[in-house]
């Protein structure tokens, strides 16, 4: 590689995010969108590393939530109590934040939480691929929430849903200005919602990779290895907290739709 020749050691912090097909190599020059060359590009049905790691996340979720709870024991085994803890945690969150009307969207919130949590945690395995570090994935997740909440709000509350932007507690003169700000902040929601998740994971994994790259230099390698260890611990925390934050923000947005137009 050119970088090796240039600087003596190579750090490619972004290489871990490359989407690759599993069963073939993309020939160089067969996928250059700038020149309208697409024949070597990844097809929508192709099995890529994204597919593999999402499938692993699904399998892990099924293993935990279905086989873990298969005992249906009144006195739960360890794995069953983990299931019940996650269930109770998310159920309580949905009930607390969205109120009683929001409980029927609990399975969807649970799906999001489990998918993000398991993708984040599986992404921390060495040599793995973090699906939630990709903007395409998180934007899709955030847009599903955004569109879902908007459509749900309009269907449930009709035009009254738009009253959310009209802050009736503010002085009349300020209301149009506030309405514009509210509308902007409403449409920025999916952006921040998705970029937060992808950015956190991307940043953490890239930083880990950079420090791991420093480990090839003998002088600073003990420091680098220690730093990677410390950051790994932090990333474990971030993985869980980001799943939690994504879920609780989903609940907060959901409250606007099911809780009526009051602000």
């Amino acid at each position: 590689m050119t970088d090796v020749a240039e600087t003596g050691f190579a750090i490619h912090p972004m290489d871990q995010f490359i989407v690759k097909p599993i069963f073939r190599e993309i020939e160089p020059g067969t996928c250059v969108p700038a020149e309208d060359i697409y024949e070597g590009c990844i097809k929508w049905y192709e099995i890529t590393n994204v597919t593999v790691w999402m499938a692993l996340a699904v399998l892990a979720i099924v293993a935990l939530m279905v086989f873990g709870s298969a005992g249906r024991a009144t006195i739960p085994s360890r794995i069953q109590s983990v299931c019940e803890m996650i269930y109770g945690f998310i159920y309580k969150m949905v009930e607390d934040v969205t109120g009683h009307d929001g409980v029927k969207y609990f399975p969807y919130v649970m799906t999001l939480f489990l998918f993000i949590l398991f993708s984040n945690l599986l992404g921390l395995l060495p040599m793995s691929f973090t699906t939630t570090s990709h903007v395409a994935v998180t934007v899709t997740l955030a847009l599903l929430v955004f569109l879902g909440v908007t459509i749900l709000g309009l269907v449930k509350n009709g035009i009254g849903f738009l009253g959310m932007f009209w802050v009736s507690s503010a002085p009349l003169a300020l209301r149009p200005v506030l309405a514009i700000i509210e509308v902007i902040s409403y449409f920025v929601r999916p952006v921040s919602h998705s970029i937060r998740l992808a950015g956190n994971l991307m940043a953490g994994h890239a930083v880990m990779k950079v420090f791991a790259g420093f480990a090839s230099m003998a002088v600073i390698s003990p420091v680098a290895v220690g730093a990677v260890t410390a950051i790994y611990g932090l990333e474990l925390l971030v993985a869980v907290v980001q799943a939690y934050v994504f879920t609780i923000l989903t609940c907060v947005y959901l409250k606007d739709a099911v809780g009526g137009a009051h602000h």
Binding site: C31, P33, I42, W44, Y45, T48, V50, T51, M54, V137
Partner: peptide, 16 residues
């Protein structure tokens, strides 16, 4: 950035 590689988007979204 691989995240900005639009040719992979459809594949990721479909599998997601």
């Amino acid at each position: 950035m691989p995240q900005l590689d639009t040719t992979t988007y459809i594949n990721q979204i479909v599998w997601l």
